[in-house]
Amino acid sequence: MDAELLYASAGFILFVLGIWSLLLHRLLIRKLIALNIMGSGVFHLLIATAEHHGEPADPVPHALVLTGIVVAVSATALALSFGRALRGDGDD
């Protein structure tokens, strides 16, 4: 139960920190990092909801997080490519 609360609280804090950075920074790469931090917060929350007081953990949120991580990585890569194409120089 305590670990569950810790994970959920950390998830909310990460999510809110991510929104803060997303709103107040103008560089695309900072916004992308912020979105990834928000995603990490959501993953923390999903892992927290999988716990149920000593019973075996619910596997469905675990599976969602597992695929979500990989999808988040590739979506970030696509967004970075868009950013590079928008800047038009393509040197990084």
Partner: peptide, 22 residues
């Protein structure tokens, strides 16, 4: 917003009935 989310989650976690799809 963080306070609201925490409040919703912890009131839900305290009263959650079942163990989901476990």
């Amino acid at each position: 917003l963080a306070g609201l989310l925490q409040w919703v989650y912890f009131t839900h976690a305290a009263t959650a009935p079942g163990a989901g799809l476990t």
